[in-house]
Amino acid sequence: MPKETRDSTGKMNVASDADQSAGRPRSLDKSVQSAIGARLRAYYDEVAREAVPDRFVELLKQLEQKDSGGEGRD
């Protein structure tokens, strides 16, 4: 079974894949899988590593204010 290991930014250490198990002769070569995995994570992490835009800090503030300010329902 693939073992999930990740940190808060969504990075993951790819463990061996279930696809590699018997009965799946057409699975990709393991080195291909890890090369693709590495490129995908690089792509993904490039966005995940960006500074969080201010709009989200503002949003959280607004949501908290709305919460403490009573029954703001929409």
Partner: peptide, 24 residues
Amino acid sequence: MQVSDEFRDGLIEAIPSLRAFAFS
């Protein structure tokens, strides 16, 4: 019902990876 600090912190922590997921 008030949102717990833990829940709020969890949201904040998840923002970077949510952005990456949405972008992809």
